[in-house]
């Protein structure tokens, strides 16, 4: 088994790099775009600063629709969009598009939920101090939600490590795809187990560091 592992090592390294690329691009993009969307969902929602029932319903519905797609189907369904954005429908870059499109509403929901669970008193205090809406979001809501947001990012990253395993379908590679190709298709069970162990280690590292960061940011004691 070890001979085989050593033989496949370059491929494992490549697979790890592919998984890493997918996450390093899609997760920050999801945070960058999902955060404003989540703030908007919260802001125009029933407990928000600027309740807009109709717009909220439309946005809420759109988010639900995207979130309903099984990732495998989304991957295929948006191939034309993928081709338009990255110029190709296969390869690692091509997987990043559906991953990001899936991750944006996923994270937006987290943001919305984390904000709506905050105590309304701090918002009221900020309003009494003459804060603008932007200041309330930046200096109050996002500050108070920070530990919860870090937890959400951690959960999202773990989920998307799992989603990225489906990248093989469009030749995106990655460690999950590696496990499927060698372990499942070629019956090299020990190689599959080795890949899964690697995934378990990665997930553990992400989860432990995420939890630790969240705890250090949380000052509620």
């Amino acid at each position: 088994m070890f001979d085989r592992l050593i033989e496949l090592w370059p491929e494992i390294v490549l697979a790890l790099a592919q998984t890493g690329t997918m996450l390093i691009v899609s997760i920050p993009l999801a945070i960058l775009l999902g955060t404003p969307l989540g703030i908007l969902l919260y802001g125009i929602g029933p407990t928000g600063l600027h309740h807009r029932p109709r717009l909220h319903r439309v946005l809420d519905g759109t988010v639900n629709v995207i979130r309903s797609f099984p990732f495998l189907i989304l991957l295929i369904a948006i191939i034309p969009i993928t081709r338009f954005i990255v110029g190709s429908s296969i390869g690692t870059a091509a997987v990043i598009v559906p991953l990001t499109i899936n991750a944006i509403p996923y994270f937006a929901r987290f943001v919305e939920q984390n904000l709506s669970q905050l105590d309304g008193g701090v918002v009221e205090a900020a309003r009494s101090m003459g804060a603008s809406r932007g200041q309330i979001i930046r200096d109050v809501l996002l500050v108070e939600a920070r530990p919860a947001l870090v937890t959400s990012i951690t959960i999202m990253t773990v989920s998307f490590i799992s989603y990225s395993a489906m990248a093989g379908l469009v030749g995106g590679g990655g460690i999950g795809d590696f496990a499927i190709r060698y372990g499942y298709y070629r019956y090299e069970t020990d190689i599959m187990i080795a890949a899964i162990v690697l995934l378990v280690v990665i997930v553990q590292i992400v989860q432990v560091s995420g939890s630790r960061l969240s705890r250090s940011l949380d000052k509620r004691l």
């Binding site: 701090v122 009221e124 500050v143 000052k219």
Partner: peptide
Amino acid sequence: GMVFQHFNLLNNL
């Protein structure tokens, strides 16, 4: 200025 029953301070600051 305004002062509140439940203080309404930011926990993370």
